[in-house]
Each structure stands twice: as structure tokens, then as C-alpha cells.
Design a protein around this nucleic acid. Sequence first.
DNA 1: GCACGATCTTGTACGATGTCTAAAAAATTG
DNA 2: CAATTTTTTAGACATCGTACAAGATCGTGC
Lengths: 135, 135
Amino acid sequence: MPTTSAILKDHGIRPTPQRRVVLEYVRASDQHPTAEDIYAHVHRRRASVSRATVYNTLHLLVDHGLVRRLVLAGGTVAFDARVHPHHHFVDERTGEVQDIPFEALRIEGVEALSAFDVEHVQVVVYGRKKSDKGG
Amino acid sequence: MPTTSAILKDHGIRPTPQRRVVLEYVRASDQHPTAEDIYAHVHRRRASVSRATVYNTLHLLVDHGLVRRLVLAGGTVAFDARVHPHHHFVDERTGEVQDIPFEALRIEGVEALSAFDVEHVQVVVYGRKKSDKGG
DNA sequence: GCACGATCTTGTACGATGTCTAAAAAATTG
DNA sequence: CAATTTTTTAGACATCGTACAAGATCGTGC
């Protein structure tokens, strides 16, 4: 398990303390933290990390493929260190988003879309979690 | 073809002039206009329709299923009067969004998602339009 | 270690999008 | 017309994100 610092270096990014703490948090989180989540956390841990630096760093990480930028239902923008593709489930009541393993769903008919060069396909499933008692 | 007024009444919405002009524009547009697009247009047509009313009306229309709220790539929020389900293609270079007929794709494995009551499934295809000359 | 230029961080101002509120305006009811 | 409800309005406010200019920090050559 490489250190955060090593990961950054491997991607040609100078591993400053601010960048390390941002990447660390995104990688540690099994949720999908928003930029504000990240800022709040990082700011708490190291009193003076500015908002601008958090945004700069997130862009940097996204550009280098270390982190993915997601647009959740409702338009919330979140970040995710899991780079391998996966689908999303959105609870229509709470807005909560949950990952669905990429292998769990298969999409047929993509080859027939002759007008497009397809890079990536993602399914968004809307519904409600069964464990929830009625609303 | 029912009038905008009739459509609103059918859904229990009092057809005020402001609401009519908003719905009319969304229905007439074959693009996916954003709230600001709609505000700009509607404001031009009837000098005094406020921003708040445009937003209020859009929420109302969404709540009554007359219009759908979309979140495009990049997090842009747009509206769409086509209520029948369809998928989306997003051009990764331009951010342009295009509809894909619902029937064009089939998703397998949804039944196996036993943790969820699934309401709706939507596929988002990312790529680039083939007709585009390289860039 | 020091000076220098390059890179990084910071605070703040700004812009875009959207919500909230209190009051005016319009419609409905009697 | 008066009373009540619904709708609209303007503008203040909140949130998210970007731009910019100044200061801090780093790496390199000496």
C-alpha cells in the first residue's frame, strides 16, 4: 500500500501537505464526499487549508486520473477515489447515492449506436431502498 | 393538441400567464433549456416575469410530472418536457446532450438488485459524435 | 547556507445558480 | 365590495466554484 505521498509523486504531482491531506481524505472515504465536505474536514485537520487550494487540488487529482468527479442526482458534485467504473443507485426520497458494481448490470444495444464513439456507459437506477419503512 | 392552459388545468395547476409561458417554452424547445435559458426567454417575451416565478413554476411542473429535471454532464441542470423515458448521450467534448430512444438499449440484471425497489433506470452514454471531424 | 526563479497557497472579490421572505397583486368566494 | 387564498415580485441571502494578486515555500545552482 503506497503512501499518499508516493502516489502523488508517481503521477508527477509535488506532494505538498495540503495535497496529501486532500487525497488522503478522498481515498479514506467510502462515501462520495463533496468539495465542501472535503474542505470542512481538511480545514478541521490542518487549521489553514484554504478553499481555493482544496478546489485546485481536486482539479489536479481529477486531471491526473487519481480521483473521479461525479455528478449525483440533484446536481450535487462529488468526488470518488474509486476509479474503476461502477453504476449508481439513487434513493428518490433521500437523494442518497450508492454504488452498484459495474458487473451487476449489463447493457445491450450500445454497439448499435452507430452515430457515436462510445467511451463509457453508466446506468443510474432510481427507486427506494427496500429496508426503508414506508414514507 | 391541447392548449398549454388545458394541460395545466388537467393537472390541477391554475393556468396563470406566467406559468403558461414557461411551460410553452419548455415544450416548444427541442433542446434541454436550463432555468436561466427559460428565464431569459420568458423575461424577454413578457417584460416582467421574475426569476423566482420561473423557479417556482419549474418546480411545480416537475412535481406534477409535466416536465423533467435533468442533470447534464458537468452538473448543469436542465429541463425537458418529454416525459416518456429515454436515455442520454453526452458528448464529452462539447457537453452536448442528445436523447437515445428508450428501446435502443436493454439493461440486464436489474431484477437481481434485491435491496431496491426500482422505479426507473436510465443509461448515460459518454463519448463523442462520429460526425465530428477530429479535434 | 543563500539567492533566485518557479511553484504552491492564501484570502478575498467575484460570478452563477438557486432559495427565502415579506409584501404587493390577482383571483376566488361570499 | 370585503375577506381570504393563491400567486408573483424584488431583492436579500446562501452555496458552490473561479480569478487574481500577494505572500510562502520549494528546488536548484552556487
